[in-house]
Every structure is written in structure tokens, then in C-alpha cells.
């Protein structure tokens, strides 16, 4: 009967129906209670207006590479022997913590790059295609993911063990829900922009991933090459921020010109 997260609208419908059925005063009070509870959580983000039409002739691109200078930190081996299922999924190979990883070519993976400021005047419709977050070998794949406000997040588990996904957020409602092996995917959306949220599995406390929700499609997460690209950005001046879990954040002011590519590289150092 209870609903998490975005389902608050559904919770509100429960109240009035319950009142009609019984007509008793106390039930009304309880329904009010339930209603209050759903109102107290942040309201879903409602599109203020229709998506801003964007002329393809006026858009440009930002791309760049995230470098790392200095000695890469030692990454701890993750001990999974608490849950034998997790350990067996890796067939005895040691698994290292994902945070603090540096690519062999001296670039950084798992960097979340997005427009921190400058794009507020545009409105973008959320894509209906879900972003996938998988639990695989008792690790989250991907480790860092971006998502647009209102876009569905699909959480699946490929492990033959129980997981729970505990979202830690400030702007968005927190949630915490278990997923048994073989259970259907969990769908969640974020109603407000927030960089960064984290999701953790309490049953396997080493499991953590980072979720950046932004109000526009201009975000990227670096991979093994350390490169990123933000395409289709309307001409203008923006603050580009590069976020890392271990080395802090950096930002740059970038001006995008129509049909031009602007470079914005970042170089992180050990904290």
C-alpha cells in the first residue's frame, strides 16, 4: 500500500477514497495524516512551461579530457567474504575500491561533467528512455551515472543475493528499498536537480554509486579514456563543473559558439 518516492501523488489519492468508504471521523483524521506525510516530501518537479525550442544552427559542443597529476592513491581491496555469494561472483579475483581509480594513461574515469550554471533559461523534456543501474558482483555498474530530472532510473540486480538500494540525497526524497534475486526492476525518478547523490547497499556496505541529476541533457561521465563531450549546447556562457568522488571538484567558465567545439580540460591532483 505504501509508495516510495515519486508515487506521492498516488498516496494522496488513498486518503479521500478511504474517507468515502467509512465516513467516520477518525479515518478522516488518519487520511489527513497520510496526506500530510505525502505533502511533506518534496513535490515532484513540474515543468513550468513547454520545452524551449532550440535552433540546431545555434548549438555548439564542449569537450575535453580529465587528467590526473601526481601519485595515484592506493586502492583498498574490497573484502566480500561477509557474503559468500558476492565473493564467488568474482571467482577469487581481488576487487578494488572504485573510488580513487586512475586510468593507465593518466586520465580519470568516473568524473561527472555537467553545466553547473548558464543553462537555467532552457527547459528540456525528460527522456522516457530509462537510465540503467545494475547490481553486478555486488558492485554498482556504472559507478557514477548522470540522469535528467524526470527521467526514469531502472535498477536491476544480476546477483543471486539480496540487495537494498539506499538513496542518500538532500534535495530529493531519500528512499531505501530491497531487491531480491529475481525481483522485477525498480523504477525511480528524481524530481529536482542534485549533484551529487549517492546510493548505497547496506547489506554490502562497500557498494556505493553516485547519481547526478540535472535539468538538462548536457552531462557526461568519463570512462577509460578520461574524455567527455557535451553536444548540442546552445551558444552562450556556462560554468562547467567536473565532479570526482575522491579529488574534489573543479569548474571553468566556458563560452560555446554556434557549430564550434570548445575545449575544456581539467587536471586534478591528490587531495
Amino acid at each position: 500500500m505504501e509508495r516510495y518516492g515519486h508515487g506521492s501523488g498516488k498516496v494522496r489519492r488513498h486518503g479521500p477514497r478511504a474517507v468515502q468508504r467509512s465516513g467516520r471521523l477518525w479515518l478522516g483524521a488518519l487520511a489527513a495524516c497520510a496526506m500530510l506525510s505525502s505533502c511533506s516530501q518534496p513535490r515532484p518537479h513540474v515543468m513550468a512551461s513547454k520545452p524551449t525550442p532550440i535552433n540546431p544552427a545555434t548549438v555548439g559542443e564542449i569537450d575535453g579530457t580529465i587528467y590526473f597529476k601526481g601519485t595515484p592513491p592506493r586502492r583498498q581491496v574490497i573484502h566480500m567474504n561477509e557474503d559468500p555469494v558476492c565473493a564467488s561472483e568474482h571467482r577469487g579475483r581481488p576487487v578494488h575500491a572504485e573510488d580513487g581509480k586512475v586510468n593507465p594513461n593518466g586520465t580519470l574515469p568516473n568524473v561527472f561533467v555537467y553545466l553547473r550554471a548558464g543553462a537555467e533559461k532552457y527547459v528540456f523534456a525528460p527522456p522516457s528512455r530509462p537510465v540503467l543501474l545494475a547490481q553486478k558482483g555486488c558492485m554498482y555498474v556504472p559507478h557514477v551515472l548522470g540522469i535528467q530530472v524526470g527521467q526514469p532510473l531502472e535498477i536491476i540486480s544480476e546477483d543471486p543475493t539480496m540487495h537494498n538500494v539506499h538513496l542518500i540525497a538532500k534535495n530529493n526524497p531519500e528512499w531505501n528499498v530491497s531487491q531480491a534475486p529475481g525481483a522485477p526492476p525498480i523504477f525511480k525518478t528524481f524530481s529536482r536537480p542534485e549533484v551529487m547523490m549517492s546510493a548505497e547497499c547496506n547489506q554490502h556496505p562497500w557498494m556505493r554509486c553516485y547519481i547526478g541529476a540535472v535539468a538538462n541533457p548536457f552531462y557526461a561521465v568519463t570512462g577509460s579514456s578520461g574524455e567527455y563531450a557535451l553536444r548540442g549546447v546552445p551558444a552562450g556562457t556556462y560554468t562547467v563543473e567536473a565532479w570526482t568522488a575522491t579529488f574534489g571538484t573543479m569548474e571553468k567558465s566556458v563560452t560555446v559558439r554556434p557549430k564550434k567545439t570548445t575545449q575544456a580540460n581539467f587536471t586534478f591532483q591528490p587531495m
Binding site: 509508495r3 516510495y4 498516496v11 488513498h14 477518525w26 495524516c33 497520510a34
Partner: peptide, 17 residues
């Protein structure tokens, strides 16, 4: 007592259960 029971069972309706 009746109200107390109602409040307890109402927790089935709220977020998080």
C-alpha cells in the same frame, strides 16, 4: 484505544510502511 489501533494500522499507508 480505538484511535491508537487506527494510528498503528495507518502506518501501512504511509511512505516506507
Amino acid at each position: 484505544t480505538f484511535t491508537s489501533l487506527g494510528v498503528l494500522l495507518a502506518s501501512f499507508l504511509v511512505r516506507g510502511g
